[in-house]
Design a protein around this nucleic acid. Sequence first.
DNA 1: TTCCTAAATTAGATTTAGTCTAAATATCAA
DNA 2: TTGATATTTAGACTAAATCTAATTTAGGAA
Lengths: 153, 153
Amino acid sequence: MVFNIIHAKQIFTDFLRKGSYRVTSERSEVLEFAFKQVQHFSADELFLAMKNEGSNVSRATVYNTLELLVKCGILSKHNFLGKESRYEKNLGAIEHDHLICVNCGKIIEFDNAEILKIQENICEKYGFVAINHSFITYGFCKNPDECKTNGKD
Amino acid sequence: MVFNIIHAKQIFTDFLRKGSYRVTSERSEVLEFAFKQVQHFSADELFLAMKNEGSNVSRATVYNTLELLVKCGILSKHNFLGKESRYEKNLGAIEHDHLICVNCGKIIEFDNAEILKIQENICEKYGFVAINHSFITYGFCKNPDECKTNGKD
DNA sequence: TTCCTAAATTAGATTTAGTCTAAATATCAA
DNA sequence: TTGATATTTAGACTAAATCTAATTTAGGAA
Ligand SMILES: [Mn+2]
Ligand SMILES: [Mn+2]
Ligand SMILES: [Zn+2]
Ligand SMILES: [Zn+2]
C-alpha cells in the first residue's frame, strides 16, 4: 500500500524499471498532479487542471499514465453509474468501497474486510486469481435534509 | 422478483400506469426483445437485433425503455471494465454478481447472500436506503487452458 | 366516439469519453 | 556518444449515449 508522494514515486519508478518502461518527466508530472487531488477525478479533469497550471503534458499521455498508475496500485479506477472513469489515490490497507445516492450524488466511502473474504472464497471456488474489485451500493439518503446539496465526490 | 415474460409484462404495465407513463407498443416490443436475450446485451446490440428482425423502434426509444426496465426491476444494468452498459434479465431471488477475467474476458456469475447482508449493515450505519448494488471482481483464470477462448458474456 | 393535450417517438445531429495515428522527440543500453 | 526503440504529441477518429424539434400517439374528458 502507498503512503505518500515519495513512496508513490518509488513504487512507480520500480514498476516502470521492472517492466522496462521508460521513466519520463511526463509520467512523473502526471503522478504528482494525480497525488495532489483530494477527491475522485476524471482523466480529463486532471488533464485540464495540469494544463491550467502550465503543464504541457498531452491528453493521450495523461490517459495512458493513469492506466499505468492503476496497474501498479497507486491509483484506483471507478465507474460510478456508468459515467466516465474516475480515479483516486490508494492509501489505506484495504481497498475502500462506495455508497452512492442516486438522488443527490453524495458518495460515502467505507472499508469492509468481509468483502475481501467473500472475494477470496469466490475466487477459490471458481479457479480465479483476484486482482481487484468494485463494490458499489446505489441508494438514497434516508434523511431528506442531507439529500439536497449535490455533494458529488 | 421477475419470473417470465407474462409476469414481466404485468410488472412493467403496473409500473407505467402507477407512474402515469404511457403504455406503448414500442415499450412492449423492447421488453419482449430484451427478455429473449439469453446473455448480457448492450442497448445498441438490442436496437440492431430488433431492427434486424423487422422492428421499427428507434435507437432513442430502445435506450429510454431499457432505463425504465431497470427502474422497475425487470433488468439489471452493468458496467464491466468501464465499457458500454450491458443489461440482463433479473430472474432469481438474489441479484447475482460477477467475476471477470481481464485476460480472456470470461464472465462468471455467482449468487452470494452475504453481500446483501453487508449492504444492509453499511446502509444502516450511514443512513442510506439501498436500491441495488454492483459487485465485480476482476482477475484472471488460474488454469491457463481455460483462459484462451474469448468467452465473453 | 371524437377531440384534445401532454407524452412519446423519431431521424439525425450533437456531445463526450476515450482511442488511434504517424511524425517528432527522448530514454537508456551499449 | 550513439542509435534503436519507446514515448509523446496534436489532432483525427470512434463509439456510446444524449439531445432536438418535428411528428405521432395514448388516453382522459366531454
Ligand atoms: Mn473513493
Ligand atoms: Mn449477469
Ligand atoms: Zn442523497
Ligand atoms: Zn481468462
